[in-house]
Design a binder for these strands. Structure first.
Lengths: 354, 354
DNA sequence: TTGTAGGCGTTATCAA
DNA sequence: TTGATAACGCCTACAA
């Protein structure tokens, strides 16, 4: 007697067992191989047979077991996405774009949270690899210290070698397909905007954390600010977060009293800075102009509306998915996305009375 | 010769094959069974053996193949989360909490986006079921029309019958473990706050969309407002979104000129309303008080800070994970979470000059 | 305490 | 065009 018979049911089965490939095959009196081929649209099955199989499978409510399929070497329908901070709207918008776009392709996205910790990131990537996801997308700044990226890079390399796809967003250290926001250009844009408004004493919040994004944005700012002999600017060491900005803003205000413009390296940081200014009774932009980066959703809802440089986050997410879904083996492809200045009410010409 | 030997490497392997259980076993000179037991903390392995295995596995960067494990009957390490809108901070915070908490348990979360569309939701749930996720969490309001929920309910029932776990957040129609925000209570809280401030002419934005959350919040508001004979209030039909609020705010202002307080059913809606008021040159709270629901992160960052009722979103996410991870079979468990009034600057006593 | 062997549901490789 | 049959990598009775 075949061992392939489901547990005999003396009484009616309570637990509706999943219908398997075999069940469909037996119902049709054909082999599992045929059903498999028919269902995955592979050649080697007659038109009518394929049709019959499909119909029966549908009637029986058959859904392939993803694990069995993957184990046997079939294609995976899951994508992995690793972000630094899920609650950060910057990543949320990217993630949302990917989840949406993935759905259009019948794919699922596994979201991981690395908290800017290289070790945690490594662990997440390892997990995704173990899940045999079809592709892995890493979103968020890389680290200046290559040693921190090395282990991850190695795991990813193995993943790619085994047919996996990899793409990164906003990360230039890893040798992979990349969607790269022009952070240097964005920095220059912000700096130009402030200089044109007449600001000559500027404080930039940032530099801590060893992130390439931070470095690039600062480099862009410096390229403009350093070129103008009338401008004095200071880099106030600050973590790349709202809380970091809260702390650094207070320090900076005390250390550089003549400042007329405060540049933060992200909209998130700007919210922290605005909080402090409000508590101190300083008016924006009358007393101080403030700027951000990214143009996340809330930038427009803040009051005053935040002047910032927009990166097309949704587009970036979709582009990454696109890269990852269009396999290729040559050298890494790069999609640079540039920023657009979004002037709002948080910047103005410096107040002459100060 | 064992067929279990990896492709002989005449030259150094380029393709780093995944290390398997077997590889770890061989490295230690033990059987796969021992490694399996040691790694999954099962009894039947000596303390020191277990320790050696764990160390070696870690050194070799071994991560179990999820598909093989699941196929062999092991536990699944993936959770499914279906939310209405990923970009909505309400869901983002819940999702973040779940992803984080899941990681602590070595689990991954597959995030799905249903866009408040029952059919799309059904499809997402089906996909998750096909992926044999360990548990499915549905976050977000249910529909007033039970017929819309029925197909999903049925699929979930089959999932549970096969050992799956299900929990919902903020959804009372489905027969499953649930984390239920006290929306009625929150509505009452907001209404009481406004009445106590002295408001007598109030407009509530909401009612469209057929969502239970909306119905409950309105019921809570009504329970207080209707009880006060001095209060006149109107329900302005409005979609449950920021854009909806934008449109409805304009209409409501024109239709009910004497209004002193504008109640929106979510913080998101409040941002839409505030936008309109700002554009119309109306000051909040001097000309009009405005309230929200949920206390999502940006509520505090708006200017004026938004008066709202806080639901502990992070806690709700973790609670749902908790329910889902502590299997049980009896009747559905319910965890009700109550709200707290968060008075900020968007509400004040009505201006007597108006 | 440890090892052996069979099976989980598919896909892929051969034959037929 | 179809059908056996061997992987895929792990878990778990059962044996030792």
């Amino acid at each position: 007697m075949s061992s392939d018979v489901r547990p005999a049911a003396g009484r009616p089965e309570v637990v509706a067992a999943t219908t398997r490939l075999e069940d469909v095959a037996r119902a049709l009196g054909v082999s599992g191989a045929t059903v498999s081929r028919a269902l995955s649209g592979k050649p080697g099955v007659s038109r009518e047979m394929a049709e019959r199989v499909r119909r029966t499978a549908a009637e029986m409510g058959y859904v392939a077991n993803v694990h069995a399929r993957t184990l046997a070497g079939g294609p995976t329908s899951v994508l992995g996405l690793v972000v630094h901070e899920i609650v950060d709207p910057y990543f949320t918008e990217i993630a949302a774009a990917m989840v949406d776009a993935a759905e259009e392709h019948g794919l699922l996205v596994q979201v991981c949270h690395a908290g800017r910790d290289p070790e945690r990131e490594l662990k997440q990537v390892r997990t995704l690899v173990a899940h045999h996801v079809r592709a892995i997308v890493l979103a968020g700044s890389g680290h200046l210290d290559p040693a921190l990226e090395q282990p991850t890079a190695q795991v990813l390399q193995g993943f790619v070698a085994r047919g996996g796809q990899v793409a990164v967003i906003g990360r230039r250290g890893l040798k992979a397909d990349a969607v790269l926001p022009d952070n240097v250009g964005a920095g220059a844009t912000i700096a130009r905007h402030l200089v044109e408004l007449g600001h000559r004493r500027i404080v930039v919040l940032g530099g801590l954390g060893g992130l390439t994004t931070v470095q690039d944005r600062i480099a862009g700012l410096a390229s403009v600010l350093d070129a103008d002999p009338d401008v004095t600017w200071h880099l106030e060491p600050c973590e790349f977060s709202a809380d970091g900005a809260t702390a650094a803003t207070a320090t900076a205000l005390d250390a550089h009293p003549g400042t007329t413009a405060l540049v933060t390296l992200s909209d998130q940081m700007a919210t922290g800075a605005l909080d402090v200014l409000r508590r101190r009774g300083l008016r924006v932009p009358d007393d101080l102009s403030v700027t951000g980066f990214d143009d996340i959703r809330i930038a427009a809802q803040l009051s005053p509306g935040l002047t910032t440089v927009r990166f097309p986050l949704t587009e970036m997410g979709r582009k990454a998915l696109d890269l990852v879904l269009r396999p290729h083996t040559g050298r890494p492809r790069r999609r640079t996305v540039s920023s657009v200045l979004v002037p709002r009410d948080s910047t103005a010409a410096p107040n002459p009375r100060r």
